[in-house]
């Protein structure tokens, strides 16, 4: 269902999603590339990545990396998150293992990587569609979470700064808030930034 909806929305024919396919099986890679010929996916294939994989990721900036779960290059991808400060890339792993679900449960529950079954050319498009939907959903949740965290921290800062002003200038809460708001408007800063400045000034005094 989800994949059909995506298809409809994005049937413009433009190749707006870059896929990096890491597969030592060149024949399979060709079939996959052909199967995606008329889709929104632009495929780059890498047969023997080793040392060049990081460069490729850096140059290509793929939206999704598709890799055989049995490829030695998995450890290179693993290092993208921990060693290099490269944005983590969504990774779709394909596996001929019968029980891909159990592997999925054990990986970061489908967060930045998940496992699908065998890479059969006719299944590739729906798999990628589902992956895109899934990663976008995750990205959305992540953004929402970080915004919520940001709001919470900003509210805390503003309260803290208000209390400092109230105590130091002996003014009411409303007056303290108005002072901060005026400063923010006069200097074109965010209220949170003004609050942070007040807190840091108070800390250094």
């Amino acid at each position: 269902m989800a994949s059909r909806k995506n298809e409809k929305q994005l049937s413009s024919g433009t190749k707006d999603l870059r896929i990096l396919l890491i597969d030592e099986n060149t024949h399979r890679a060709d079939l996959v590339t052909a199967a995606l010929g008329d889709s929104r996916y632009a495929i780059s294939h890498l047969a023997s990545p080793s040392g060049t994989l990081l460069k490729q990721v850096d140059q290509l900036q793929p939206d999704i990396i598709v890799i055989d779960i049995e490829s030695p290059s998995r450890d290179i991808l693993e290092s993208l998150n921990t060693i290099k400060n490269i944005n983590p890339k969504p990774v779709v792993m394909f596996s001929s293992e019968q029980d891909t679900d159990t592997i999925n449960q054990s990986i970061e529950s489908g967060v930045s990587a998940y496992v699908v079954g065998d890479l059969e050319p006719h299944r590739v498009k729906p798999i990628l569609d589902a992956a895109v939907a899934r990663f976008r959903e995750y990205q959305k949740l992540k953004t929402e979470l970080s915004e919520t965290k940001q709001q919470l921290s900003s509210r805390k800062n503003i309260d803290h700064a208000k209390r400092i002003l109230m105590k130091n200038r002996n003014i009411s809460e409303e007056q303290a808030f108005q002072t901060m708001r005026k400063t923010a408007m006069d200097t074109g800063q965010k209220l949170d930034d003004v609050a942070k400045t007040i807190i840091s000034m108070f800390n250094t005094l």
């Binding site: 049995e70 991808l77 293992e97 592997i103 449960q105």
Partner: peptide
């Protein structure tokens, strides 16, 4: 196993 990451994932999954 060809990679440590996959070895780990398979152990975690009980494979």
């Amino acid at each position: 196993q060809n990679s440590w990451a996959t070895l780990r994932d398979k152990l975690h999954a009980g494979i």
